[in-house]
Amino acid sequence: MGLLEPDRYFSRLSHIDLERDLRARGLDCVLLDIDNTILARDTHEVPRDARLWLARAREAGVGVCLVSNNWHASVHQLAGELDLPIVAKALKPLPHGLLLGMRKLGGDRASTVMVGDQLLTDVLAAHLAGMRAYMLQPLVEQDLPHTLLLRNLERMMLGSRQPEPAPPACRQNLDAHPQEGLR
């Protein structure tokens, strides 16, 4: 697999099935990007389905560490709100921040996956660190100017590749527990 090719491609975090897509593949440590992966750039909110997924990951014994190139106080506040460890100013695509996050979770390369919305930071950093990379579509189209330029390049690199369809169980679980994961 190429350095810039995600191992899996999903439309949302909640479409990653904890058992089938993580545990069954030996993955119990998740490094999770923040901006436009779990925090919408337009509203600066974590969507309900992402909060629910994080709560279920915790219940399932899947460790999660936030890994962001951002260094502002807001990412540390979010980590505190979600009660998650964080590596800020990670300098992705350099692998150092991911390796630090992996160590915070007590994982190794084989048991860790990076989940993020960008090929040129998240996916590349994961593969340079020797771990798997799951890519998500960005939560919203709004982004930083330089990121919008990179998105055009990413679209060309992804070609016709589309995110995997959401498993029916994901949709059913969210419909059955609409208040779960809310703060």
Rank of each mutant, 00 (worst) to 15 (best):
D35H: 02
D35R: 02
D35P: 04
T37N: 10
I38E: 10
I38A: 00
I38H: 06
I38M: 03
L39G: 13
L39H: 13
R41K: 14
R41C: 13
R41H: 15
H44S: 11
P47F: 00
P47W: 01
P47M: 01
R48Q: 13
R48P: 08
D49A: 07
D49V: 08
R51T: 11
L52V: 12
W53Y: 14
W53E: 12
L54P: 10
L54R: 05
R56Y: 12
R56W: 15
A57K: 11
A57F: 06
R58F: 07
R58I: 09
R58N: 11
A60C: 07
V62N: 08
G63Q: 09
G63W: 04
V64G: 02
V64L: 01
V64M: 02
L66W: 07
L66C: 08
L66K: 05
L66F: 04
S68A: 03
N69Y: 08
N70G: 01
W71Y: 13
W71F: 00
W71K: 09
H72R: 15
H72S: 14
A73R: 14
A73Y: 13
V75W: 01
V75F: 02
V75N: 08
V75K: 01
V75A: 02
H76N: 10
H76P: 09
Q77G: 04
Q77P: 02
L78S: 03
L78H: 06
L78E: 04
A79D: 03
A79N: 04
G80M: 11
G80Q: 07
G80W: 00
E81V: 01
L82K: 08
P85S: 05
P85K: 08
A88W: 00
A88E: 05
K89E: 11
K89A: 13
A90D: 11
L91T: 00
L91H: 04
K92M: 10
K92V: 11
P93K: 04
P93A: 00
L94I: 09
P95L: 03
P95H: 00
P95V: 04
H96E: 15
G97M: 08
L98D: 06
L98G: 07
L100P: 09
L100H: 12
L100Q: 14
M102Q: 14
R103S: 12
R103A: 15
R103V: 09
L105Y: 04
L105N: 08
G106Q: 12
G106L: 12
G107S: 05
R109F: 10
V113D: 04
V115C: 08
V115E: 06
V115K: 03
